[in-house]
């Protein structure tokens, strides 16, 4: 039984972290693109901005559970299988990237536009402004957003039990729903709660530590 839970915990953490990492690789640039192509930003491109915004909204409107099932054919092509941990990770990435893009967008938009204007007045290129002003200044907020995204992805990963995705959610569904073993289900839930608490705490502490505004 301990082994079962250790395996479940490991699967959950692996799925969550791997999906978060890759989803950030995709979502972060999209979030930056949403900011810089906006009206009055450093590189306005109204058409591109609307298209990206529309796609992001569409993917975000589809509930994860439905995406999980609807994507089975695509998942099979990309991952080679539609069940298990790796299949889940793929769907998690697709689902979380647009969410992350919006989080990144709102973090960057918190920066005072005057600071960006100041950088422009110094002759900074857009690349410099993105790296050294937008992303640097938004760092604490980005870290808070990352904690939130990781927790959301963790929650989604638990749902992947439906497609036999592995992890604590899988255990909870298998034993709780199909075998009526409520005790095991609640234990899995309790471990999930603890993992969420730890992630949240780590995120907040790092954000506070790197923030020089206070």
């Amino acid at each position: 039984m301990t082994e079962l839970f250790l395996q479940g915990l490991w699967d959950t953490i692996f799925m969550t972290l791997a999906a978060t990492a890759v989803a950030y690789l995709v979502g972060l640039p999209i979030g930056v693109a949403l900011v810089v192509t906006d009206d009055n930003s450093i590189h306005p491109m109204p058409l591109i901005h609307s298209i990206i915004g529309f796609v992001v909204n569409v993917v975000r409107s589809v509930p994860f559970l439905i995406l999980l099932i609807a994507m089975i054919p695509l998942t099979r092509i990309v991952v080679g299988t539609a069940i298990g941990t790796n299949a889940t990770i793929f769907v998690l990435i697709v689902s979380a990237a647009p969410f992350i893009a919006r989080m990144v967008e709102s973090s960057i938009k918190e920066i005072d536009s005057g600071v960006i204007e100041a950088a422009q007045s110094m002759g900074a290129s857009n690349k410099t402004i993105i790296w050294k002003v937008m992303l640097s200044e938004a760092k604490p907020s980005l870290v808070v957003g990352m904690a939130l995204s990781t927790i959301t992805i963790l929650g989604y990963s638990a749902m992947a039990g439906v497609i036999g995705g592995g992890g604590l959610g899988d255990i909870a569904i298998k034993y709780g729903l199909y075998h009526y073993k409520a005790g095991i289900m609640w234990l899995a839930v309790a471990i999930l709660v603890i993992v969420v608490q730890i992630l949240q705490e780590i995120g907040m502490r790092i954000a506070k530590k790197i923030d020089n505004r206070g």
């Binding site: 100041a118 007045s121 002759g123 200044e137 604490p140 790197i210 505004r213």
Partner: peptide, 17 residues
């Protein structure tokens, strides 16, 4: 622009630096 510097009402300093 490097030859035309500017200062601002709200200072516009980078808060994380």
């Amino acid at each position: 622009r490097r030859e035309i510097a500017m200062i601002f009402q709200q200072f516009n300093l980078l808060m994380q630096r």
